[in-house]
Design a protein around this nucleic acid. Structure first.
Lengths: 191, 191, 191, 191
DNA sequence: CATGAATGAGCGTTCATTCAT
DNA sequence: AATGAATGAACGCTCATTCAT
């Protein structure tokens, strides 16, 4: 079991760094201090290992999304919770986070690919969550009137952009979270 | 001359779709209706072709950045001009735009790579431009007081996120531009 | 004990179907509902298992040859008994019969191989038996005068051809036996 | 073109000696004094090379069958011509002949395989030819009355057996041809 | 007796690249 | 300018085998 985990750990790191095609099974095996065939023994091959990692990453991600509560004080606190969740994710598992964000889009042309299905699922869930916040906030007078669908879409793009930037090590996390939250709050919340 | 352009065109499309490692010279040659050695005759090889494409893409991008005027009416109009520039770019040359955004980050570990240099250059220029807008706007009372550096960083991430999303065909362009501009305006501009 | 037999049974079938090189130990293990190392425990390995099968197959074959009686009524009845023996063999143990006939020849280049030795032994015994029949038959006036050595050789080739054809399921056994016997009888027996 | 032929020549020899699975592309490349990738350049791979060889072998075989004349003096001369054709074939191109006879049967489980189709075609043609000879010969009184279908089948098995034996170098050709022809003549032709 | 984990050796294949023409 | 032939290097993967348990 130890070596199996070593493989996963090494693979996550290298896949994140070099992408799927740019990574060789030998690189993974070397970094995991294991021989190549063991990758084929535990997972079914390079693709299988990659899928396994995606699966556990998406599972972790979706399970975190599940923890978002519907009944917080204000709608903006729900928005903030969503942003926090992503900042925390990228902080706690930066490689996995970046791996998904950077390699999955390349698979969007293959409708049956694990990436495609999960990415669409992710977008649907994020959009539903954000749209719900916005609608409630607008109805209750907490938020400005904004086009719900497009704004949700904008949020998703923004989150992805922050995600990638963070994964690439191009900014400092602490400041960014507050600035992001502040930026969104001023734009959405009335007064 | 014709075939050279055919190669570039094919390469841009396939590199954008499959990434650098995921693309083979045979695929490019086939799509360009050309034989492989011609790629080596015109460019120095796969890497050379890739670099050539990056070079012209970044050149086009930077030359567009150069057209941004410093003395528009308000600072937010300058911000808006920057956003417009990116939306227009992704609309006019979607493959090149997406290619740069999606494949360059993978090279950030190689400090000497064309991608790395140009990406850092891009970030510096964007940051300088946005920071200048923000500082002027804050000083003149047009903008809220925001942390300049972090907000510029946030803008860059946001622009990248929108860029990628658009390149992936995951949203509709028209609505997004207005929503984005509106979102930023409400957050920045006083009153 | 049970599992050891399961392995042999599975191996005979798959070796016969796919040849020695075309068969993997995993295939055998799977079909025998056993793990691969057990093959190495009971036999010494793939080659050992193969040899074991050859050994029992040839043993069975030679022991059947031993039962052929020298003092039947006519020499042609001895020929007929030989043909019958082979038809019965392929009927009773088709996989083993076909396995030997189809995989052994490939080993003829290795003089030390079990196959080579046994095949030469088989040819010698068949030739001796047939030649004896022919010589006696010719001397007694039962048979036409035929070149003994070459005719024996012809018989061996014919038997092998029928064997293979039957093993491949390309003809119906019943009719073939009578036709074969009749064909040889008319050719050999006088008047 | 030279090297392409070298590959074919080497492949025919080694495939014939070791079978399809027992042969490695490296062996072929080495014997042909060529690098492995050239096999994939000219043919599409190991399987492609194998198919190519089968194709030209069967083509040659069938084109020889086409030359068999229908209007020879006697029906037995037609039978003799068929036997001669096979003895000549194995003499002139022993490797190809043996290759087909020894490796094709293993593919009979795959109905779509080139081998399967061509082997069935071969059997049909041989059976049709032999059956025609027998029927005419019986009608005209040249031949004994024999069951046509089964005897044709017997002939095919016999030819295959002789073929294989010869390909394996287990007998001497010259004597065998006369003995075979004589054996069949005595059995078929009246008086 | 039996297995899960692990490996060394080698296989068929791909790919970017070179070279003679 | 352009190509067909050819190759060195490396890749993902399979397989028979070993070993600790």
């Amino acid at each position: 079991m130890n070596k199996k985990q070593d493989i996963i750990q090494a693979a996550v790191r290298i896949f994140a760094e070099k992408g799927f095609e740019g990574t060789t099974t030998l690189q993974i095996a070397s970094e995991a201090r294991v021989t190549e065939p063991l990758i084929f023994y535990h997972f079914k091959g390079k693709e299988g290992l990659f899928s396994h990692i995606l699966e556990i990453s998406f599972r972790e991600y979706f399970s975190r999304l599940d923890t978002l509560k519907r009944d917080l004080g204000t709608q903006f606190e729900r928005i903030k919770a969503l942003l926090d969740l992503h900042f925390r994710l990228v902080e706690e598992m930066p490689d996995q986070a970046y791996l998904v964000v950077s390699t999955c889009p390349a698979k969007l042309n293959y409708p049956e690919h694990l990436c495609t299905k999960n990415m669409h699922l992710q977008r649907e869930r994020l959009e539903a969550y954000i749209a719900d916040c916005l609608e409630n906030g607008i109805k209750s007078g907490e938020f400005q009137e904004v086009p719900v669908h497009e704004t949700a879409n904008f949020f998703i793009a923004m989150i992805n952009g922050l995600f990638r930037q963070r994964g690439l090590g191009l900014d400092e996390l602490d400041g960014m979270r507050d600035v992001t939250v502040g930026f969104c709050k001023r734009s959405l919340v009335k007064g």
